[in-house]
Design a protein around this nucleic acid. Structure first.
Length: 577
DNA sequence: GCCGTTTTCGGCCCGACTGTTTTCAGTCG
């Protein structure tokens, strides 16, 4: 049993208890358990049998949790979990994902109107029955409808990390079959888009039926939609659809090219082929006059045959990549191995799970030359943000840690809140003591765009600010970016030698691809950071790199590919790029 | 439910905003 399966159980129990109005601290501790389970790098179900003390030592996991996990490992389920599920219909839980509607009102609406699904909720709102519920008026009813609308718009899509996590075991399952000769993902998942509609998988085999059967025997299937001779479609647990296409090895490259898309890219490629008397299909590249097949087994060969540099999947959006490939001047896209450090992470000093030393050791394990510890400032009092005095104390601790560890340079940093008028949450005197200052917006998201632009620009003009973190504040599939004038903000950042962040946290990926490219073209320097809240999250760098590649970034565009001396010069504003 | 002590029970991250109230509850971050 995987940690995430156990985590899902604790999350669901927390959700139900919340609607029931149970003890909030008990709910919070269930959520903490779920978080802990996600961040641990060993299998808890196995460990609890072999070495329970190891599990018991995890902060947030106590006797009650040990009991529940042991019960699940022994019997396959947890009695309390089953009992709770019987009390609140599972169909009510997705209502918790609606913005503007919380557990209290869900509980109230359920008990007074019997509404237990989003569909019923929508009907009740449209018929103005919600206003009869105590504490709900016209405006709340309208805001609930808006919440439902937003929810429907994003439903059925997965974040890239969720899609990759769902796909990996399925690919593994297919790979174990002898008849599978070649195997890859296609579609938006291969292009590494930030969200994914469905999962496309291609298999080359000489025994199509066997490969299809293997696919349909995957244990993670929820429903089988189609199961034909050359293709099959299933849905997985989160309702996401996975499509398999089976083909012969000699057309695998052509199929990969065809099914990777994007649609616009393929249209342009096929037009180009047509002008050259060629025809491109999912079976290969053919000469029109005699239908002779000229390429198809490998994907690069298709591009070469059209006198193009092979185009990395991340660039295939028909945004100029074909013209550049013709000239042979495609960017040499950044790779994860170019990264020498991570400049945004949190520790136990504010809302991180691990200590400064833990983070440093994790950085060393990744082969980094430097990291920056950037805990939150005091405006975020709810998560223990640091005030001036605490920052200075923290600096002394990091100095000591640098002396002890030695193998990696730990930069003294802070993630400082940009307050409502653009002023920073810490005094310049204290900022001057730091190696690196990250500025970010965590409040007042729905300002007028002009006001937001002014606010951010004012913060960027502070001489100590080095990085503007997660510049648009978007949360994928949940929160829209806040509105401001990108070009103006980028311009002011460049003028003040401030870097723009590509936040690799998988539900942010902010800046996004198009904005990265714009920033690069304007001359901005980017910093790709994980915003880790635990040592395990340093792996999120992978997602940042995917997005960076979609934004056409090369190593030279990214400050944390620079050597330490060069980075320090940028941080002191003696250099930019 | 977890934790840490004051070692076995009491505290557990808080402040702003909104809409609905007529003095505050619910939601969000």
């Amino acid at each position: 049993m995987e940690n995430r399966e156990l985590a899902a159980m604790f999350e669901e129990m927390a959700d139900i208890l919340e609607i029931k109005g149970d003890n909030p601290f008990r709910i919070r501790s269930f959520r903490r358990v779920a978080e802990a389970l996600h961040s641990l790098n060993f299998n808890v179900a196995a460990a609890i049998v072999e070495n329970p003390e190891k599990v018991r030592a995890v902060p947030g996991i106590g006797e009650g949790t040990i009991r529940k996990i042991s019960e699940v490992v022994a019997t396959g389920q947890c009695e309390e979990h089953q009992r709770l599920r019987a009390e609140i219909p599972a169909s009510a839980l997705p209502m918790l994902d609606l913005q503007g509607l919380g557990p209290k009102r869900i509980g109230l609406i359920w008990s007074s109107l019997g509404v237990s699904t989003i569909d019923e909720l929508e009907a009740a709102a449209r018929e103005h029955r919600l206003r009869g519920v105590p504490g709900i008026g016209e405006k709340t009813e309208a805001s609930i409808l808006k919440g439902i609308e937003d929810y429907r718009r994003t439903q059925g899509r997965l974040r890239l990390d969720q899609a990759l996590t769902a796909t990996a075991p399925l690919l593994e399952h297919l790979r174990e079959d002898q008849s599978v000769l070649r195997l890859d993902t296609a579609g938006s998942i291969r292009r590494r888009r930030d969200t994914i509609g469905d999962i496309d998988i291609l298999v080359a085999t000489s025994e199509p039926e066997k490969a299809i059967q293997r696919f349909l025997s995957y244990p993670g299937i929820r429903t089988v939609l189609v199961g034909g001779g050359t293709k099959a479609s299933i849905t997985l647990s989160k309702g996401v659809q996975a499509d398999l296409r089976v083909l012969e090895e000699q057309s695998f490259g052509a199929a990969l090219q065809y099914f990777t898309g994007s649609k616009d890219h393929n249209v342009a490629i096929r037009e180009r082929a047509k002008r050259r008397g060629l025809k491109v299909s999912e079976y290969g590249v053919f000469r029109v006059e005699d239908n002779q097949k000229l390429a198809g087994e490998d994907e690069d060969g298709i591009y070469r045959l059209l006198d193009l540099q092979p185009i990395p999947p991340e660039l295939r959006e028909n945004r100029g990549e074909i013209e550049r490939a013709e000239l042979g001047t495609l960017p040499r896209l950044i790779e994860e191995s170019d990264i020498r450090g991570d400049l945004h992470m949190h520790t136990t000093a504010s809302d991180g799970r691990d200590t400064a030393e833990d983070m440093a050791q994790a950085g060393i394990a990744k082969g980094y030359e430097y990291i920056a510890l950037t805990d939150h400032s005091k405006a975020l009092s709810m998560i223990g943000g640091l005030d001036e005095e605490a920052v200075l104390r923290r600096c002394r601790e990091i100095d000591r840690l640098n002396e002890i560890i030695g193998r990696i340079r730990i930069l003294k940093g802070m993630e400082v809140d940009i307050l409502g008028e653009g002023e920073l949450d810490l005094s310049n005197e204290v900022l001057a003591a730091l190696d690196i200052v990250i500025a970010s917006v965590h409040s007042h998201f729905n300002m007028a765009p002009e006001k937001m632009t002014e606010r951010i620009c004012r913060a960027l003009q502070n001489p100590y600010v080095n990085i503007l973190a997660h510049p648009t504040g978007r949360i994928l599939l949940r929160r829209e970016p806040y509105a401001f004038d990108f070009k103006e903000v980028f311009r002011v950042a460049i003028e003040n030698k401030v870097m723009l962040e590509l936040n690799s946290y998988p539900d942010r990926l902010d800046l996004k691809d198009a904005h990265l490219r714009l920033a690069k073209e304007m001359g901005a320097l980017i910093s790709i950071n994980t915003d880790s809240h635990s040592a395990a999250m340093l792996r999120f760098m992978t997602y940042g790199i995917y997005t960076a590649r979609r934004g056409w970034l090369e190593a030279e565009d990214v400050v944390n590919t620079y050597s330490l001396p060069r980075l320090l010069a940028v941080l002191k504003k003696q250099a930019y790029r």
